[in-house]
Design a protein around this nucleic acid. Sequence first.
DNA 1: ATTTTTATTTAGCTTTGCCTAAAAATAATT
DNA 2: AATTATTTTTAGGCAAAGCTAAATAAAAAT
Lengths: 217, 217
Amino acid sequence: MFSLSEENYLKAIYHLEKQADSGVSTNAIAEQMDTKASSVTDMVKKLSDKDLAIYRKYQGVQLSEAGKQTALQIIRKHRLWEVFLVDKLNFSWDEVHEVAEQLEHIKSEKLITELDKFLDFPKRDPHGDPIPDAKGNFQVANKTLLSNLEIGDFGKVVGVKDSSSEFLKYLDKNNIALGREIHILDKEKFDESMLVEINEKQLRISPIVSSNIYIKS
Amino acid sequence: MFSLSEENYLKAIYHLEKQADSGVSTNAIAEQMDTKASSVTDMVKKLSDKDLAIYRKYQGVQLSEAGKQTALQIIRKHRLWEVFLVDKLNFSWDEVHEVAEQLEHIKSEKLITELDKFLDFPKRDPHGDPIPDAKGNFQVANKTLLSNLEIGDFGKVVGVKDSSSEFLKYLDKNNIALGREIHILDKEKFDESMLVEINEKQLRISPIVSSNIYIKS
DNA sequence: ATTTTTATTTAGCTTTGCCTAAAAATAATT
DNA sequence: AATTATTTTTAGGCAAAGCTAAATAAAAAT
């Protein structure tokens, strides 16, 4: 159906569209995909020709409905494979991304339907991100960043914004995992650092950390 | 490490080498891979430059030790994924090939190690073909073709030579599966057809069929 | 031993997806 | 409003992997 490269572009544009609400710039895509803006221009024209995106010169790109659906199906596959790797093959949450990036491009309707069933229809991936269903629908969680909580607040860790290996390893080391209860004991005005209680231990957390952890409170 | 195309060539050459014991011809490879001989010549030079194959103009190709090992690892992955699809995802043996062709190219040492463990270290794929281990070693079964058996002989179905979807569906329809006991009741001299008993039923089998079923007797 | 047929290689062209450098458009400053 | 800076696009190329058509080598047939 679509080439590997096209699929990767669709995914990247989808993720960028969530943040910037106007058209996504070629530069932004280039940075995200670690390629050059001129290459992006080329590909974006191709996607536009195939009606997967809407593109007007110098005005950035948006996904069409078809493009969005395609992106969502790739994301669905990515996240289901991540669940498989963690739940069945003993991968840790910081190891799954690279492999899932490859697995997400495997083309087989039956494969993904059966995988979903085998995994018992998971709703979220190992990082707390929602898994779209076959129609592209997914649960939007009412979550907030840990950095938004105030002294005395309680909450539960439900996701991470940054899912880089480095950040995830930091969380592992400090025993911060999805589902953990967290209690804000103190918040420093001048550097925005927080003192929290998690797992019956106290921990001081920098604002970079607290602004990359999602909480349901 | 190697491109998708390179991996597919290595696999094809490996399989052809088993039959023809001299160098494999570019034409044979072209036919196997559904491509043109000129394309094969190009690629075979590339493989030779990378020391994955030994190639002399007009003399055909052979895999080097490194090429053979690489091919075996791809075959290992292919067959492990086939087991996964059948054992865990409810695929039938005629549906697995196409998907495994894609999955075999996923690059991750840990993935395949853990998959092997998850499947409990299977020794054979759903068609009875042996699965090489991480070092490229595999069991060579002492099997023979059903067509070699004589009247009165007994045996057990242990594999198929042709694993095309059409053939496998024919076998399903006639209840011929791996592990079944088979008894040769009659063998027709003039057309080589056989009358066999399998599953307590009698069945007449054409030579095309009997020469594509492996038996351990 | 030629000649004919078949197999293989070479040469040159195509597409995909990327790149660099130059040109053009837009945005930001003064 | 004009100039400068930044972003985006265009133009021209490159590598991988394929193709067709022509040339060459090897094998088969006379």
